[in-house]
């Protein structure tokens, strides 16, 4: 099993055990009773301190598209890939690539978070962003 690590610190947790779900890390504001992603330094509504929280790995598809252009960071031609906006139960809307092809997605369907390898190092370490897959 390849060693998967987040592309950047502070966005997500990828457990060493692949049976466990990876999770996004956000901020909760007690003063606004709102949750945000990614981590905020202060609550954007009240400017009060926030606490770091793990977010639910499953949400609902709010919108989607199928892109025929290269992904950010690449200029290679691609056969196309899905992108979606997913609403998590905490009230957070996440934007990310989604697995599947045209016809697979329906607004309101359940989607689950998954690591999305972007770059593989010489030692096999996979640097990952995140994506959602139909749950």
């Amino acid at each position: 099993m390849a060693n998967m690590v987040p592309l950047e610190d502070g966005y997500m947790i990828i457990p060493e055990n692949p049976e466990l779900p990876c999770k996004l890390i956000g901020s909760y504001s007690k003063t606004a009773n709102k949750t945000y992603f990614p981590i905020r330094k202060l609550c954007p509504v009240t400017s009060e301190p926030v606490e770091t929280v793990e977010l639910s790995p499953v949400g609902e598809l709010y919108s989607w598209s199928f892109i025929m252009m290269p992904k950010m960071g690449s200029r290679e031609k691609v056969p196309g890939y899905g992108v979606g906006q997913i609403d998590l139960p905490e009230g957070v809307r996440i934007q990310a690539p989604i697995d599947g092809k045209m016809g697979d997605w329906k607004i309101g369907m359940k989607m689950r978070l998954a690591p999305n390898p972007v770059v593989t190092d010489e030692d096999g370490t996979q640097y990952c962003s995140f994506k959602f897959v139909p749950a």
Partner: peptide
């Protein structure tokens, strides 16, 4: 660290607008 893509820039603007359009259709 080694130069890697930023987590913040994984989607193209074309995708943002398309999802806005898709939601409008819905």
């Amino acid at each position: 660290k080694k130069k890697l893509p930023s987590m913040e820039n994984m989607l193209l603007p074309a995708g943002f607008f398309a999802m806005w359009a898709q939601r409008r259709m819905h």
